[in-house]
C-alpha cells in the first residue's frame, strides 16, 4: 500500500526545502534585532552616521527576508502534497500553530516590514523605530509558532485520539503552546539564530576593516554584534543543555544516538571526541567507537541532573531492560498490531450497527492505544536513527558553539580597545565565522530531525505511514525542480547581497 521509496523522496524533498529555508531564516531572526538596536541608538543620539549604518544593515536584511518567505511557503505546501496522511491524522493540532503563525505573526512582520523599508521619510522617527521592533518581534513570534508545531511532533501532548475519524484532536491548546520541548526548542533555536545574525554583521564588518573601507561603521557594528553574540552564545549553551535534558525524558533514543550510547549504564560518560564504528549494529558485540575520548559520569549528570544515575542506551530501548522498567520495541509492536486490528474491528462493527461488538473492540483498542504507531513498524531496529549522522552533527554543533563564545569575546575585547584593525588573522576568521555559524545551525536541525527517525510524530506515527499515496516519480521530479529553483534563488541572493556590500552604506 505504501511505497517506501516515496517516503525517502518525500523526506529528501522536505529536508532540502527545510535546509534551504534555514539558510535565510536565522539571518532574519538575528539581524532583525540588530537592526532594532542600531535604529534605537540612532533615535537616541540623532546622529546621521547611525541612521546610515541602520539603513545599510536593513537593506541586507530585506534582501534576505524575501527569499526566506519564498522557501517557507513551499514547506507548508509539502505537508499537503507529500504528507497528506500526516496532515489528515494530526491536522487539527498541527494546523493550529501554523495558522496562527500565518495570520498573527507573519502578517505583523509583513505589515511593519513595509513601514520599516519604505517609511523612512513618510512616518515619524519614533513610529519607524516602533515598526522595526515589530518586525523583529513578529519574525521571532513566527519562529515561536513554527517551533511549537515542531515541538509537538517531538513530544505530542494536549490531544486525544478519535477512533471514529482516526484523527488526533486537540484537547488542551495551552499544553501544546507551553510544552517544555517547544519552549526549549524556541529559546535554543532563536538564540542560535542571534549568533548567526551577529556573525553576519561581524563577517561583513571584518571584510570592510581588511579592505580599509567604512572603518568607523564597521567598528561600531562589531561592538554591538559581539555583545549580542556573546550573550546569545551563553544563553544558547544553557538552552541547549535544557534541550538535551528534555530529550532524556521525551526522546531517550535520540539522546542515546547522538551520544553514541549503545549499552545503558549508571554513571554514564560523554564521548567528547570520537570516531563512530560504521559496522556497529544494535545488539551486536562490536565496539561503538573506533576511537574515543570520554568524560566519565557527565552524561548521567546532564541527562538526569543526578550523578551516577542510569542513562538508557540504544540496546536497552530496542530490546528492553526489565530492571529499569523499559519495555522492548517488539512487545510494543505486538500491542500496536493488536490496536490496529481492534480499531478495524470497531469500525466494522460500527458500520454494521453492532453496538455491543463495537464497544468491546473499542475497549480492547484503548488498552493498546498508546502503542498504535508501533504496529506499523517492520522491525524493532527500525526505531534506531543513524548514530553516525546524529553523533557527528551534535558534536559539530557543540564544538562550534563553544568556540563561538571565545570568538565573540575576542571581538568584543579588541573592538572596545580599538585594536581590531591590526589583527588581520582574527578579521579573516571573522569573515569565515558566518559560514561556521551556518554549519553549526544546520547541524542542530540535523540532530533534531534525523534523531527522531523513524517517527513523523514521536511514538505515534512512523514516517512510512505519514506520506501521500502517490507515485515516486512526481516527488522525484519536484525534488530536482526545487533543487534548481532554490539554488537559483540562493545564487541570486548572494549576488545581490555581495553587490550591496561592495557598494557599502554610502550608496544608499
Amino acid at each position: 500500500m505504501f511505497d517506501l521509496q516515496m517516503v525517502d523522496w518525500a523526506r529528501a524533498q522536505f529536508a532540502l526545502t527545510a535546509m534551504y529555508h534555514w539558510l535565510f531564516v536565522p539571518l532574519t531572526l538575528g539581524l532583525s534585532f540588530l537592526c532594532a538596536f542600531f535604529e534605537t541608538i540612532y533615535v537616541r543620539t540623532g546622529r546621521e552616521e547611525w541612521k546610515n549604518l541602520t539603513r545599510f544593515w536593513m537593506t541586507l536584511f530585506g534582501i534576505n527576508f524575501a527569499i526566506g518567505v519564498a522557501t517557507g511557503i513551499i514547506l507548508e505546501f509539502e505537508f499537503g502534497t507529500n504528507w497528506s496522511n500526516y496532515s489528515w491524522m494530526v491536522g487539527d493540532i498541527f494546523g493550529a500553530p501554523l495558522a496562527i503563525e500565518g495570520i498573527v505573526a507573519f502578517f505583523l512582520e509583513a505589515t511593519f516590514f513595509a513601514v520599516m523599508f519604505f517609511g523612512w521619510d513618510r512616518v515619524s522617527k519614533n513610529f519607524h523605530l516602533f515598526s522595526t521592533w515589530m518586525v523583529a518581534i513578529g519574525s521571532n513570534l513566527s519562529a515561536l509558532w513554527i517551533l511549537v508545531a515542531n515541538g509537538w511532533m517531538q513530544y505530542p501532548i494536549g490531544m486525544a485520539f478519535n477512533p471514529d475519524t482516526v484523527r488526533f484532536e486537540m484537547e488542551n491548546f495551552w499544553a501544546v503552546l507551553f510544552s517544555p520541548v517547544a519552549l526549549a526548542k524556541f529559546t535554543h533555536t532563536t538564540s542560535s539564530s542571534f549568533i548567526v545574525g551577529s556573525f553576519f554583521v561581524i563577517a561583513v564588518s571584518s571584510w570592510y576593516l581588511l579592505k580599509g573601507r567604512h572603518i568607523e561603521m564597521a567598528k561600531k557594528s562589531i561592538i554591538v554584534a559581539s555583545v549580542f553574540g556573546l550573550l546569545s552564545a551563553t544563553y544558547a549553551a544553557w538552552t541547549g543543555d535544557e534541550s538535551a535534558y528534555s530529550n532524556a525524558s521525551t526522546q531517550p533514543m535520540k539522546l542515546a544516538a547522538y551520544e553514541g550510547l549503545y549499552d545503558g549504564e549508571k554513571n554514564a560518560g560523554i564521548v567528547a571526541l570520537g570516531v563512530v564504528n560504521p559496522a556497529k549494529q544494535p545488539g551486536d558485540q562490536q565496539q561503538p567507537f573506533l576511537f574515543e575520548i570520554k568524560i566519565p559520569g557527565l552524561l548521567s549528570l546532564l541527562a538526569n541532573r543526578e550523578l551516577g544515575s542510569f542513562v538508557p542506551g540504544i540496546n536497552d530501548l530496542v530490546y528492553g531492560n526489565e530492571q529499569e522498567g523499559i519495555t522492548s520495541v517488539a512487545a510494543r509492536m505486538e500491542k500496536g498490531r493488536e490496536a490496529i486490528s481492534d480499531l478495524a474491528a470497531y469500525k466494522t462493527a460500527k458500520r454494521a450497527g453492532d453496538a455491543t461488538a463495537a464497544e468491546i473492540s473499542l475497549a480492547r483498542f484503548n488498552t493498546n492505544r498508546d502503542s498504535l504507531g508501533y504496529g506499523y513498524l517492520e522491525s524493532p531496529e527500525q526505531t534506531v536513527p543513524s548514530v553516525a549522522i546524529t553523533f557527528y552533527a551534535f558534536h559539530i554543533m557543540v564544538f562550534f558553539g563553544t568556540f563561538f563564545l571565545l570568538l565573540f569575546l575576542l571581538f568584543l575585547i579588541f573592538s572596545v580597545k580599538d585594536t581590531l584593525a591590526g589583527k588581520r588573522g582574527l578579521l579573516m576568521l571573522g569573515v569565515g565565522s558566518f559560514f561556521l555559524a551556518m554549519i553549526a545551525s544546520q547541524s542542530g536541525w540535523v540532530v533534531a530531525e534525523v534523531g527522531r527517525q523513524p517517527w513523523a510524530i514521536q511514538g505515534l506515527l512512523p514516517v512510512n505511514v505519514a506520506t501521500t499515496d502517490i507515485g515516486t516519480g512526481s516527488v522525484q521530479a519536484t525534488f530536482f525542480m526545487f533543487l534548481a529553483v532554490f539554488t537559483l534563488l540562493l545564487a541570486a541572493e548572494i549576488k545581490i547581497m555581495l553587490k550591496q556590500i561592495k557598494i557599502g552604506p554610502e550608496g544608499l
Binding site: 543620539t45 526549549a184 567598528k219 546569545s232 544563553y235 535544557e242 572596545v416
Partner: peptide, 30 residues
C-alpha cells in the same frame, strides 16, 4: 523553568541592547 527560559529570552534582548550602548560609550563610539 518555563518562566525562567522565557524571562531569560526577553532579558537577553534588553541586556544586549544596554550592554552594547555601554560598550560603545566605553569605546567612545556611541
Amino acid at each position: 523553568m518555563t518562566a525562567l527560559l522565557l524571562g531569560g529570552w526577553v532579558a537577553l534582548i534588553f541586556v544586549s541592547y544596554r550592554l552594547s550602548v555601554s560598550m560603545l560609550k566605553k569605546a567612545g563610539k556611541f
